[in-house]
Write a protein that binds this DNA or RNA. Structure first.
Lengths: 258, 258
DNA sequence: CGTCGTATTGAATGGGTTCAAGTAGCGTGG
DNA sequence: CCACGCTACTTGAACCCATTCAATACGACG
């Protein structure tokens, strides 16, 4: 029942208690955890699933019976429209719970897919419900996590609706760097961004051609370097100014700014 | 402490137990409530606040100590950018809890304002925390409400990013009608939409001039009539098709479709 | 070494914006 | 009762940011 039927072949093994450390770390970036809470998290019943890049994890209209935690790799959520148009809704990194909403909204209204190869932990909804009943503080932390998610949607919406292409891309780079930095996956204004220019376009409501031109402009102005999937933000001040980037909406703990 | 200091003069009176009926109705559209839960909701400590149209309720960077329930009137959330650019993030109707997120995200990352004259109930955060501790089912219902909120953000993002102006406006009209219909404020494909063409533009990432032209096109094609704030959807089929409207993301109870 | 996905470049096109002017509707006060 | 003024709506024309179409180059990988 756990693995979505009739999909990609998935490798499933059972989890050991150290597997869920990324989840613990993520929630610890949101609240203080007691040792009982940490222990309860680590002993959640989980199945480990290994997935190839660019595979759907859950699809629009699905009614999943479990949530996944990203243990390693990147994932993204997206919607498809007519004529092959795609809108990428969010990008997710280790520790994230990208389909936590299925705990309370039973039908998926979008797709969730891997961007890179991923290691996922699948946790049954009942286990989450049991956990939040026993530890309301964990429930509050997870609620808060979904609220930050929504805050990021609002910010993206604002960018797509009212920012120039240059500002949008600048803003995205600032955001991704800070998110990675917050969970210890980036320092010194350098990080991995394993997505293509088509992906960036579909996330920001732009064509891949235009993304390409704006990236060249950014390089030309000495704001960034970007080769393969390696991003270096050369001039954080100028980049965040170009994107009118204000990290309030990420609701990070005090001082995590640059 | 309840009324945000130094703002618009607000009329504050204490609430009677019947005031919060719109909130009860809203949550009942989300879950089944027990009579204890209903009673607890109605006896929440609330202050009634009357506000003029187009006044800020809470602002970016505020740290409110209470949430508001819209008892009557419309409200909207928005962000401001440089050069007076504005992005409207959401539209809210009676029964909504438009700043429920402040319960867990302590700093506002956007503004909330009245669109029309409004009657609001202000409820201290402590009262909500106490309520969700005593009635976890109510906590789950409110969590679910914020998740539907996020689902609407995703849908708007998709529209702004990947739909034509015509499709975006069509989609918005379908959405607003269904939301109003779901709480008994609209029937027969008719409803009030008390916003200007500038508002529509700022919600959908368009200029007011272009909104005007698209509206005329819609009228010309016989899809809608819109005079003053009165919308009539003449051809629901064509309108929802033009907007590629699929109501799944609203997560309404079964069958509320048109 | 060929192949497929990704990145890059150029040229033409277009959806939507901007600027500017004019109209309609409505509440207010003389 | 009408003039006034405010706001929202409407229209036209020029412009532009970004798209689309179409090649071409690159680069990883079997």
């Amino acid at each position: 029942m756990l693995p979505p039927a009739g999909r990609v072949k998935a490798t499933l093994v059972s989890a050991s208690s150290s597997d869920l450390i990324p989840l613990v770390r993520k929630l610890e970036s949101i609240t203080q955890l007691t040792s009982e809470e940490r222990q309860a998290l680590e002993s959640l019943p989980a199945a480990i699933r290994l997935m190839q890049p660019r595979q759907d994890i859950v699809r629009d209209k699905d009614r999943p019976g479990h949530c996944c935690v990203i243990l390693s790799g990147w994932a993204y959520r997206y919607k498809l429209l007519s004529e092959g148009k795609r809108q990428i809704l969010s990008l997710h990194i280790p520790g994230d719970l990208p389909d936590l909403q299925s705990l309370h909204l039973h039908v998926m209204d979008h797709n969730l897919a891997t961007l890179t190869a991923c290691r996922l932990a699948l946790i049954p909804h009942e286990a989450f419900h049991d956990l939040t009943n026993r530890f309301p503080g964990l429930g509050a932390a997870m609620w808060r996590d979904t609220l930050v998610d929504a805050a990021i949607f609002r910010e993206w919406m604002t960018g797509i609706g009212r920012r120039t292409a240059f500002g949008r891309i600048a803003h995205l780079f600032c955001e991704m760097y800070l998110k990675l930095h917050a969970v210890g996956l980036a320092t010194s204004h350098r990080c991995e961004l394993p997505f293509t220019q088509v992906d960036i376009g579909d996330a920001l409501g732009l064509s891949n051609v235009h993304v390409n031109r704006v990236l060249q402009e950014m390089r030309g102005k000495g704001l960034i370097t970007l080769q393969g999937s390696r991003l270096v933000i050369v001039d954080w001040g100028a980049l965040s100014e170009a994107g009118e980037f204000d990290p309030t909406y990420l609701h990070l703990r005090a001082g995590e700014t640059a």
